[in-house]
Design a protein around this nucleic acid. Structure first.
Lengths: 347, 347
DNA sequence: CACCGTTAGCCAAACGTTTGGCAACTGGGT
DNA sequence: ACCCAGTTGCCAAACGTTTGGCTAACGGTG
């Protein structure tokens, strides 16, 4: 079935301010002021009502491009995300969008595929589009200087992923505390042979989780098993691969901290494939508390991550910065969700 | 830690075409033409190189708002999604973004929360933003007329969700065939007491799945168990709720088709809570083959849905329509993924 | 050397708004 | 009837581009 006529690519008649003015019998500037609630110049009530009526009748819609051109503000905020397809970022984006709605702004989403070169390209593109600000969820360690240079043009807010030693404001979670929580939990259960299933340390969240975790073990006088290969992507498949590598080591751990839930799921699959039981033989902890974590069997022990809230906070920070206000970093505390994949070590 | 100085909300010096022209010692219009590869008027090679050099040196970025105002095209495509936070939509959005990149366009995402009133609001907002086209993932049955009226202004493409009797083009899956596939699978396994765990029929995909499913049972001379309450949202929690309702019926099914994977997961949790085993006592089929479906235990039998591909196709259709070409509906065939939650009925 | 066709570059208008400068009108106080 | 303040509305410039019309220069031909 063929649809959409091939000839006219849908002309837009588009009612302008002038059309409304003409129909209402007033000058365009009067229409502009009548429709602007925060106008500096007053408009007679009767006129205003009449103009509004006319505008509604004609189906007038303000041309935000033109307004943006004049006012220097587009009302768009660039959201730079590592992977739009990833479950994990979705609630954050949603939080940002929800927050921006208050100022009738909208997010424009771009994806870096977690690649620093591509980050530069998409940020450039977003800047061309005259975004009023940038929210970056995809920051990797090496991107600091670039992002700070961008911040001289428009406000840049980091969400989720921190950047070591930066001046850029951030809304995120205390990942170091999260790592600590997990280590303490495993120690309390009697585990001593403990390993990490780690992702790239170029990602600040993961580096911090690892730090908090290792620190706690060290303080307890436990020597942590060395990290196997770092997972290149945060997917179940990588989790499986790295877990197999871990299992081929001389010393096999009794507990494993996977840097996120997807890795954990993959790791569990690897164990299951070898006939190793979770949590009877090996305890596993994930991170992020993804929506399905509680529905796995056994349900996954993990650390809750409030993506929606963090997105909302990041959106709020953007608006504050645009109003010229100073902003404080917001770091939410993590919460351990003890479920079924961890268990006291039998003596 | 306080960051971002409160005084200056980051001024943007912003290099314009004029600045480049002045620095290069030529007229702005010459710069415009030199930088436009598809310019109708030629520019001497030496001049062009010199101008490009100057532009690069000054860090010139085209002002897409201004360009859009002049040319009547913003290069933005509105993507209307029911719930940005939902796993399911993410790959579709990604596909759209990937496709649009070819024409250096970008998606602007807005969320309806699956509410028809909100749909109108966000579409209006997107139109104000002068999007060149709309991709709608959030269409509900009653939205047809509204969307068709919008289509008189800009191309509107449906992705995933169909709209009964519409002229709007669509990229999606053959959900009726999907429903059929599932029914055939269950019949082949010997099931006769079969029920649906249904979502709202205002959502075209779900209505079609149900139709294909019911049709097949009817043709086989099987009387389907009546649908319990329709799930209001497509979440595990709703799946659990509706499954409990189904179980309180006089006649309990031996096989259940849940309209999507999340409902299926919730349904399985409900069964597990009552000590009913899957698939030994009841077989369950989901729909969508979400990323984790194969990692559940037992792994979920479901129908694969190629979100990324559908998004890409929708993006391609948008571009075709913008070029004024006619487009054909694209309907991908479903594929049944038989995993561990379905089983031959013991005799 | 005059003429002509071609080509490179300049000028200015236009896209739809917002907004400061002005002018005109209104009405109240005298 | 007159003045002044206060209100209302008109005009035009500006935001950064693109693009059609125009001119100046160039090189070749008669």
């Amino acid at each position: 079935m063929s649809k959409g006529n091939g000839t006219s690519p849908s002309k837009r008649p588009s009612v302008t301010l002038h059309d409304v003015a003409e129909a209402a019998g007033v000058h365009p500037s009067t229409v502009s002021r009548a429709l602007d609630p925060a106008s500096s110049r007053p408009v007679r009530e009767a006129t205003r009502v009449m103009i509004e009526e006319t505008a509604r009748k004609l189906g007038y819609r303000p041309h935000l491009l033109a307004r943006g051109l004049k006012g220097g503000r587009s009302g768009a905020v660039g959201v730079v995300v590592a992977d739009i397809g990833n479950v994990f970022f979705a609630p954050i984006i949603r939080g940002i969008a929800l927050s921006l709605e208050d100022s009738s702004m909208m997010p424009t989403v771009a994806e870096t595929q977690d690649d620093s070169a591509r980050l530069k390209v998409v940020v450039d593109h977003l800047m061309s589009r005259q975004v009023d600000a940038l929210v970056v969820l995809a920051a990797r360690h090496g991107d600091r200087e670039f992002l700070e240079s961008v911040a001289e043009e428009v406000p840049v807010v980091l969400a989720d992923r921190p950047l070591k030693g930066t001046t850029l404001p951030r809304a995120g979670q205390d990942n170091r505390a999260g790592g600590r929580l997990i280590a303490e939990h495993l120690l309390a259960l009697g585990h001593r042979d403990i390993a990490q299933l780690a992702g790239s340390f170029d990602v600040g969240t993961l580096a911090e989780r690892a730090e908090g975790f290792s620190e706690t073990l060290r303080d307890a006088g436990i020597e942590e098993l060395p990290i196997a290969t770092h997972a290149e992507t945060l997917t179940p498949a990588e989790g499986t691969r790295v877990m197999h590598e871990l299992l081929s080591r001389a010393r096999v751990p009794t507990a494993v901290f996977a840097h996120n839930d997807l890795l954990a799921v993959g790791a569990i699959a690897a164990l299951r494939a070898r006939g190793i039981r979770v949590p009877e033989d090996i305890s596993i902890v994930g991170y992020d508390d993804m929506p399905l974590a509680g529905y796995l069997s056994p349900p996954l022990t993990t650390v809750a991550f409030q993506g929606l809230e963090i997105g909302r906070l990041a959106g709020d920070m953007v608006q504050a910065q645009l109003r010229g206000e100073a902003t404080e970093d917001v770091v939410l505390p993590p919460r351990l969700m003890v479920r079924g994949t961890t268990r006291r070590l039998p003596v």
